[in-house]
Amino acid sequence: MDLREHRAFAAGHVAGSANVELNERLATYLGWLVPWNASVTLLGVTEGEVDQAQRELVRIGIERPVAVATGGPHDWAGLEPLVRYPRATFHDLADALAGPDPPTVLDVRLPSERIGWHIRGSLRVPIPEVLGRIDQIPERPLWILGRGRQVGVAAALLHAHGRDVTAVDDDFANAADAGLPLTNSARR
């Protein structure tokens, strides 16, 4: 588990690693996404970050990671090349959807966050369900959208599972300006 900011993670990380930024929501995301009794290795820039993450892990019943490392992705990868995935805007997504082989749009927002506008035809898999429903997510290029860190967490998880991902790292308010087909799903 790489604890760096999601944009830095997207730019270069150890193959097979996942990413949850070290912040006040770390325990929540890890509780949603790390299977019970999973072995967790923490990758942090400093010892302080790793210590803080360990305290958060205890809150969800993970007493001790199997390993920790500090430094940066080049330190952790050794001789292996770093991997990355692209980040994009809603304008980039509109261009991709207009192309000859449009990607699948995966919306990972929570149900309460999706109330209102969403992109017509997008596949909805809330962030806590991504790993449990991975077999329902098409094995084709995925453009992932959500709120803030959700995009980075979902993109990292799916990328670690060998999926071709692009993180739409943009404010949803920009989707309409990009000309994307929006649908209103008002609460009933």
Rank of each mutant, 00 (worst) to 15 (best):
W117D: 12
L131N: 12
R133S: 09
N174A: 14
P138M: 01
V165N: 12
A178C: 06
R147F: 01
A173G: 14
G162N: 09
V165I: 14
A175F: 06
I137C: 05
G146T: 10
I127E: 01
R163T: 09
T166M: 13
I119L: 13
W143P: 00
R147M: 01
G132W: 07
E113S: 07
H161G: 03
E129R: 13
A160S: 15
F172Y: 14
P126D: 05
L110P: 04
A178N: 06
V168L: 15
A175W: 07
L158N: 11
R133V: 07
R147I: 04
G148A: 11
H161A: 15
V151W: 05
A155N: 02
D177H: 03
G148L: 05
E113A: 08
P128K: 08
V168D: 06
V168K: 05
A176Y: 00
R120T: 12
G132T: 11
A176G: 10
V168N: 05
G121A: 15
P141Q: 07
E113L: 04
T166C: 15
R120N: 05
L123M: 14
Q150D: 13
D177L: 10
N174L: 13
R120D: 13
A175K: 05
D171P: 09
V165G: 11
Q136W: 02
A154S: 10
Q150C: 01
L145C: 07
P111G: 04
A173D: 14
R163L: 12
H159P: 12
P138Y: 04
R140M: 03
L110H: 05
P111E: 03
D177S: 11
D164Y: 08
P128E: 05
H161W: 15
L145M: 03
